[in-house]
């Protein structure tokens, strides 16, 4: 080899690059032809392996056995176990951190917490005289902050409209017909017998929660959810045909749109009588009786009907695409 070439081949960086690329170390004392021949031999070996790999026979392989072998060779199983353990430890650490943080907050309901200021005191003192309710939360959401609740009911309405646009199937559409009801289990005698007793119980309990919105925790939203659950139970026990006899699309339309429209009319009336000392014609009544606290009871009933229709509509739309 000539001297410049020998100096080049003995540089540390060139030898390091050869070492990284996995090529064998060839001594530089040989002549140039011998050197070239040995380099060619190495590259030829590489090319032969690549050619054999690309033209390998196309055997039907078992992907699961392949995946298992791959996992064992590359250590994926060990990594998976370590990963699960570290995920568990991370969750425990985050839970511990959050609990440690909560321990610094003031005690629940203590007198010197920062939330007990004059705002809540005013509502607690004047609330019962202003609104006539015993349950102050209902007084807040249906009298002092009535427009927020109105907006929430609209949100429920819009959500159901959006789901209906996406999922409603009309008439006999052979291609898009859902096959969920065909794959259901056969109607079960035990479930039907028990449902005859339980569904009225659930509906009566829902109506009880609805009507007691201003006396104990409850009100429109939770009562409506329980009534929707009663309708879903009836549907799950007896099927869509029997439910369709009393709750079909016409009934659903009337109930939903009607209740929201009536709610809007009542709120418009409250818009004028809520401020500037204009008295409302509906009396507040005796505190603690069922028929008391002005317009809160009708609003609760309307909101409950709306929420029940929403719950049942979501269930029916996702199962069958219609009522």
């Amino acid at each position: 080899m000539s001297k410049p070439r020998k100096d080049y081949e003995e540089l540390k960086s060139v030898r390091f690059r050869r070492f990284i690329q996995g090529e064998r170390e060839i001594s530089t004392e040989v002549s140039m032809e011998e050197f070239q021949r040995q380099m060619d031999k190495e590259h030829e070996e590489d090319e032969r392996l690549t050619y054999n790999y690309l033209n390998r026979p196309n055997v039907e392989m078992d992907p699961q056995a392949d995946a298992k072998r791959f996992a064992e060779i590359t250590g994926m199983k060990r990594f998976h176990k370590v990963y699960v353990f570290m995920a568990f430890v991370l969750c425990i650490c985050i839970i511990g951190l959050l609990i440690y943080n909560v321990a610094y907050m003031p005690n629940y309901g203590s007198a010197d917490a920062p939330t007990n200021n004059e705002v809540s005191e005013k509502y607690l003192e004047d609330g019962q005289a202003d609104t006539g309710v015993v349950n102050m939360v209902t007084g807040m959401i249906l009298q002092y902050r009535a427009f927020d609740t109105f907006g929430e009911t609209h949100v429920l309405f819009i959500a159901t409209c959006a789901v209906m646009i996406l999922l409603f199937l009309k008439g006999k559409d052979e291609e898009n017909a859902p096959h969920d009801p065909e794959l259901d289990p056969e109607p079960d005698m035990i479930l039907q017998t028990v449902a005859r007793f339980l569904v009225p119980l659930v509906m009566i309990f829902g109506i009880y929660i609805l009507l007691n919105g201003h006396l104990s925790p409850g009100g429109g939203f939770s009562g409506g959810a329980v009534m929707g659950a009663g309708l879903i139970l009836y549907n799950a026990a007896f099927g869509f045909t029997k439910t369709g006899r009393f709750f079909n699309e016409k009934v659903y339309d009337i109930l939903k749109v009607g209740s929201l429209a009536l709610y809007a009319m009542i709120i418009t009336y409250c818009l004028f009588t809520g401020a500037n000392d204009i008295a409302s014609i509906v009396p507040l009544g005796k505190v603690g009786a069922i028929l008391s606290s002005g317009l809160i009871l009708p609003i609760n009933i309307l909101v409950g009907v709306e929420v029940a229709c929403t719950m049942y509509a979501f269930y029916a739309l996702f199962r069958k695409g219609g009522f």
């Binding site: 969920d180 259901d184 479930l191 309990f205 409850g218 659950a229 139970l233």
Partner: peptide
């Protein structure tokens, strides 16, 4: 106790609907 009764109803309803869906 009202909350407890609602919990009982909802868990029963969940079992009923889940078995239907899983069989399907």
């Amino acid at each position: 106790l009202d909350v407890a009764l609602i919990y009982a109803m909802i868990s029963f309803l969940a079992v009923v609907v889940l078995t239907k869906v899983y069989t399907g």
